[in-house]
């Protein structure tokens, strides 16, 4: 794993791996979707229950990516591992998108099930707070120009978040029970049909691989961008030297 610290090695390694990862992701997604399509409907909710297969894996990634981000940031902080910080940075927007997807599918499910797009239910609210934490984290990387400094601040932020997220979750639960939530329909039965379970598991796997693919692509783009920027600065420096020489020539010409 530590061989990956070197960006050049990572580029080579990931370019070999990426096509396979994409193939696995695609086949998992297609299989999963097919199974979902053929899975029996929930007798209470009808076709609405199918949204669960999109919603639940997204919710798992929404939280999982945050933990991944924290681990990556700590790795970067402790072992001065530039690629780890880059992984954390690029995981954040992906995490935010999955969180948004969870929220949106939740709302789409909520409209027919609860009769309203949004309720301040404990789980939805916690997820919304997580979304905002993602946004703040992304903003830090964008606002701080120096990437090394940004990584340090991001690590602090993610550490504080890691301690705070359980507290937030707890307080939101407490707030919600305190306020006697609106009458909700209980979601899902206690027993899940086995074919549904398999479909759900495949979707979880598909999402996980999708995340890895996206992360690889994103980190590769970032490395290429940094290379391009370094190249730009070098060209600029060389050009100034050339112009300097011609300035010199012009000045000497005048002196004579």
């Amino acid at each position: 794993m530590f061989g990956l610290a070197n960006p050049t090695k990572f580029m080579r390694f990931s370019s070999i791996l990426l096509p396979y990862l994409m193939a696995i992701t695609l086949s998992l997604l297609i299989t999963g979707m097919y199974m979902v399509w053929n899975a029996p409907e929930d007798y209470l909710q009808g076709p609405l229950s199918r949204i669960l297969y999109i919603h639940a894996p997204a919710a798992y990634l929404a939280q999982g990516i945050y933990v991944f981000m924290a681990l990556a940031n700590f790795t970067g902080f402790i072992w001065r591992h530039p690629l780890a910080d880059m992984a954390a940075k690029n995981a954040a927007p992906i995490g935010a998108v999955f969180t948004a997807l969870t929220l949106l599918t939740g709302m789409m499910w909520g409209k027919p099930a609860w009769g309203t797009w949004w309720v301040w239910d404990a789980r939805l609210t916690s997820l919304l707070v997580l979304f905002i934490i993602y946004l703040g984290y992304i903003a830090i990387w964008q606002v701080i120009e120096d990437q090394v400094k940004a990584a340090r601040i991001a690590t602090i932020l993610v550490a504080v978040g890691l301690v705070n997220i359980p507290i937030i979750k707890f307080s939101v639960d407490w707030w919600n029970t305190l306020h006697q939530p609106a009458s909700l329909i209980k979601t899902g039965g206690s027993s899940i049909h086995s074919s549904m379970l398999i479909a759900l598991l495949i979707m979880f796997a598909a999402y996980t691989f999708l995340f890895v693919c996206l992360l690889f692509i994103s980190v590769r783009t970032e490395i290429n961008r940094r290379r391009a920027r370094a190249f730009e600065m070098r060209v600029l420096q060389q050009n100034i030297q050339q112009v300097n020489q011609s300035t010199d020539a012009a000045l000497n010409h005048k002196d004579q």
Partner: peptide, 24 residues
Amino acid sequence: LSTVGLAPMPHILAARLSAGQKKR
């Protein structure tokens, strides 16, 4: 831009220039 030596990279953000390059 080419007189002051900044012609090849007109799309670089000014934040990335050095103090001398900014002066140019």
